[in-house]
């Protein structure tokens, strides 16, 4: 039976489904890492505090900007916070779950990626769980709080469809962020020093999606819609929840495409990962 199981695992297209199939392994590894970082309780609490303060500062910046401008791209302060919280939650969750993927280059250089490959567990699960740290909750918890506040304070017409759509939009956002994160990480298969370049897309993308993207130029709006589809993380979901027409003039049906984009991007990420793994050359001999 074990044989058929593992053969099937090899045939899986999506790394995310891989993750879903090995959640226990993931949880076990994450817990082991948690205990490892808990060996240094002072550092852990300071880091967590630092991450939390950083997210609060970002949030404060959103409030300050909107307080001065009144509205931005037709968005009030709470609506702006909704966009921010959607983005921060998706990126926070992606980082919580697979935050170490962008350290792939480091693992390749030190050879620890090889040790992941000789274990009977998907290296993606091991890589994603690597260095798992509870301090990452410092980002996602404040984001969730703000999300709830914004959802309550905004004037949202809570139809049944919107209520059902909310978790779908959130999940899509997380999947999109995770996939972008993974694709960016996989660049390090080919250039082990690509971490900074990759971070300009991941962290840069995060900063971008924290504001209503209508405030940016047309070219940028189009590229984050059609090229690196980060608009589906916060902007399009916010438009849908608030029932707004798109001020940048892009078609209105785009806001329903979030889940489709998420699945497509996850498939692309899976292919990139597998391609990278096959091309992997290791270091030393």
């Amino acid at each position: 039976m074990a044989d058929t199981l593992s053969t099937r695992r090899w045939g899986l297209p999506a790394p995310l489904r891989d993750l879903a199939r090995e959640p226990r392994t993931y949880a076990r590894l994450a817990w082991t890492w948690t205990r490892a970082v808990a060996q240094y309780p002072m550092a852990l609490s300071l880091f967590t505090l630092g991450v939390t303060l950083a997210s609060l500062a970002e949030m404060g910046a959103v409030v300050v900007v909107f307080a001065h401008a009144g509205t931005l791209a037709g968005f009030t302060v709470y609506e702006g916070l909704l966009v921010y919280a959607l983005a921060a939650f998706s990126f926070g969750a992606a980082q919580l779950l697979t935050g170490s993927v962008d350290r792939l280059g480091e693992h390749i250089r030190t050879g620890s990626f090889d040790t992941m490959l000789v274990r009977p567990v998907s290296p993606l699960v091991q890589l994603a769980a690597d260095q798992f740290s509870p301090r990452r909750f410092g980002r996602i918890v404040p984001a969730l709080v703000v999300l709830v506040v914004a959802l309550v304070m905004c004037d949202i017409d809570w139809t049944l469809e919107r209520i059902l759509m909310l978790p779908v939009l959130l999940a899509s956002g997380v999947v999109i962020c995770t996939s972008v994160w993974l694709i960016a990480g996989c660049l390090q298969f080919f250039a082990t020093d690509a971490r900074e370049a990759a971070n300009s897309v991941t962290y840069g993308g995060q900063a971008l999606t924290e504001y209503p993207i209508a405030i940016y130029g047309r070219g940028l709006v189009r590229s984050v819609t059609y090229v690196v589809p980060l608009a589906f993380v916060s902007w399009q979901p916010a438009l849908h929840l608030l029932d707004r027409p798109d001020p940048t003039g892009l078609p209105g049906f785009l806001r329903f495409l979030g889940p489709v984009v998420a699945v497509a991007l996850a498939l692309v990420a899976a292919q990139v990962w597998r391609f990278g793994l096959r091309r992997y050359r290791s270091t030393g001999s």
Binding site: A2, T110, G111, L117, P120
Partner: peptide
């Protein structure tokens, strides 16, 4: 690879 990993033990002396 994953299936094989169950049947072999691997030790890298340097890591």
């Amino acid at each position: 690879r994953t299936r094989l990993a169950r049947d072999i033990g691997v030790v890298f002396g340097q890591r």
